[in-house]
Computed example of a mutant assay.
Amino acid sequence: MTTETNRGALPLTVQDPGCGPRVESHAIGTDAAATVATTLKALADPLRLRMLSFIATARDGEACVCDLADLTDVSQPTVSHHLKVLRDVGVLTSERRGTWVWYSITPGYQAATSTLLESFAPAAVHALGEHPHLTVLEDADAALEHLAAELTATHPGVGADVVLRTVRESYTALARSAKVSAHLLALTDRFARQRLADLARLPQDARPQVLFVCVANAGRSQLAAALVRHYAGDRVVVRSAGSTPAADVHPAVRPELAALGTTDPFPKPLTDDAVRAADVVVTMGCGDVCPVLPGTRYEDWLVGDPALASPAGVAAIRDELDTRVRALLADLLPDLDLTTR
């Protein structure tokens, strides 16, 4: 780019023919950007984010002004003002019942809100104090080929090429969200074994298979799967996955998982193999990301998000999941004794 003077007037900028864009731009459109910016501006307030998080994690997915006034320690008129801002941009919807107005997340924004609170918000919090980066294995190909050779020997019903492809895909999928790679190969081993078991599900294995899916696979879906293992043991094959898996399980959820006997959990991406192998697919706030297959039972559980919940909030979410898991297991395994657990 060069600058010329136009007879003492303002400088003229002349575009160098060699520095123009070489590919068609796929940037967001002007109108769409303005709409998104308006919504983000409405959300860019700490108090509103706390209120949104409270509503998202509420037991019934809704809250009234009095609930939020107690949470924020501000007057009800102030709470009403902030709720109106969020309602005006379409994030919240409201319903008057009796003398109170109840607020809930607009259905079209539920998946986006889950992503904001489960993935973006924790990432932003972590970024304040640390800058994780992924250190790739020095010789990843050799390590993955060695792992594939081991798994081929233990899965004779699956072709060696399928095993190698599954191992490489598993490594790549986990590496996208991994904070460090010290345990990446071990996690790849565990994830690939799960996927191969899903691929080679034996017809004579009559055990129910349940898949729990949320956005980050860092809270709700992990807790639900742990509860199934706690109550049913190996009588049910249970998996969990995320549509956009986080780098790690939420710290507030780890003690609950440890109490249920789940050690070293890690977020995993959703795969078609897991959906095809499942008899029951339970989604929690992840929208329509699961492929719908004939013969598979689907349920959508409206359960709060523990990402930024208080310890009491996490306990309430665990109790809600416990009730739902017990009901599911009573249906899948009528003879299972849930009273002594």
Score class of each variant (00 low, 15 high):
V136F: 07
V136Q: 10
V136W: 13
L137M: 03
L137E: 10
L137R: 05
E138Q: 13
E138S: 13
E138Y: 09
E138A: 14
D139T: 11
D139P: 00
D141T: 11
D141N: 09
D141Q: 08
D141M: 00
D141L: 00
A142L: 03
L144V: 02
L144G: 00
L144M: 02
E145A: 11
E145W: 11
E145Y: 11
H146A: 13
H146S: 13
H146Y: 10
L147C: 02
L147W: 11
L147K: 07
L147T: 05
A148W: 02
A148S: 08
A148L: 02
A148I: 01
A149P: 05
A149Q: 12
A149C: 06
E150W: 09
E150P: 01
E150M: 10
L151G: 05
L151C: 04
L151H: 08
L151W: 03
T152H: 00
T152I: 01
A153H: 04
T154P: 02
T154S: 15
T154W: 09
T154G: 08
H155R: 11
H155P: 01
H155D: 02
H155W: 12
P156Q: 09
P156W: 08
P156N: 12
P156V: 01
G157T: 14
V158D: 06
V158L: 00
G159F: 07
A160C: 05
A160G: 12
D161Q: 15
D161N: 13
D161H: 13
V162W: 06
V162A: 13
V163T: 06
V163I: 06
L164P: 04
L164S: 14
L164G: 03
T166E: 03
T166L: 03
T166K: 08
T166V: 07
T166W: 07
T166Q: 00
V167W: 03
V167L: 02
V167G: 05
V167K: 01
R168A: 00
R168E: 13
R168Y: 02
R168N: 10
E169C: 05
Y171H: 14
Y171S: 02
Y171Q: 10
Y171R: 06
T172L: 08
A173Y: 11
